[in-house]
Nucleic acid binder design. Structure first.
Lengths: 151, 151
DNA sequence: TGCAAATAGTTGTATAAGCAATTATAATGA
DNA sequence: TCATTATAATTGCTTATACAACTATTTGCA
């Protein structure tokens, strides 16, 4: 062959690590998404948004905070919240101190749906995370990902 | 509050770990995708497909093998390969032993493009992976993700 | 041998997400 | 104070992907 690629077959350690992260996430995400869709009729993106809302004590976030949390564009987040609101899982609320901003709050129906999804979720996670990694390994992974995620 | 969610605010260790994996990947993927798009005009999905092709000695995979590697549907993969072929980075080749199957092979132009992308990639990875995790941590992370990725 | 079932890939269609432009409001500073 | 700039969210439009239906080929088995 006349052409000689500089990195072939891409044996670099960092490339491989990043690829592994992408692959692992893609597979787990796909599997979990199918589980949630099948047993809860809940798209993964909805689950993700609801989970971020529940994570905060107030149960509500501004549009841009959700967009950042779920790593979507603001436009995409507007449409996603439209659908969630249509389904009754969240409501938009006016922000009293900034009339540009919109709060999105999880509803009681949203909380119930999330509870149901978490039940499914836990089975899935048991069958994947806990089966493949012991407690120490899970803790290590969380620590490493936390470092990687810091910005 | 009259309603009491069973898991609130979702303090379960496995839920948090999975969320961390999703978040970390989403952020890194988004950042890398923007880098590649900006400096190489190469969509991340193209990069991913080309990388998987280069990983194998023959530089070619069947459609279903690529679909599996990049975690796309077969339909989505057909369209993705259409675009890559249109751009000249891969070619479809007939399979001599099975007339249903199609080989996709990376071209010389594809290899050049991937080399350019890997240069960008390495800067990005240096600025993220290597800056946040030392060699031992990267190795640990790779091992843990490898276990998690096994199916 | 020949028919049923499985497999590989493509195509029609629907949808979710990104980007850029737009509107509305708030903050800054001359 | 008023004009400029920045910020929050939405909307129009484009595109990438999934899903399901379809075609072509191969495999298995009676």
């Amino acid at each position: 062959m006349s052409f000689e690629p500089t990195i072939c077959p891409s044996g670099d350690e960092k490339v491989l690590l990043f690829g592994l992260l992408m692959d692992t996430n893609a597979r787990l995400t796909k599997d979990l998404g199918e589980e949630l869709e099948k047993y809860c009729e809940l798209p993964l993106a909805w689950f993700d948004a609801l989970l971020h809302l529940r994570k905060v004590d107030s149960g509500r976030l501004k549009m841009n905070e959700i967009a950042d949390a779920i790593v979507h564009s603001t436009g995409g987040t507007t449409r996603l919240i439209d659908r969630l609101e249509e389904a009754g899982f969240v409501v938009r609320e006016l922000c009293p101190t900034d009339r540009r901003a919109i709060y999105v709050a999880i509803t009681e129906a949203g909380n119930r749906k999330l509870d149901a999804a978490l039940a499914t979720h836990m089975e899935f996670l048991q069958a994947t995370l806990a089966e493949r990694l012991n407690a120490g390994e899970r803790k290590s992974l969380a620590t490493l990902l936390g470092k990687l995620n810091a910005h």
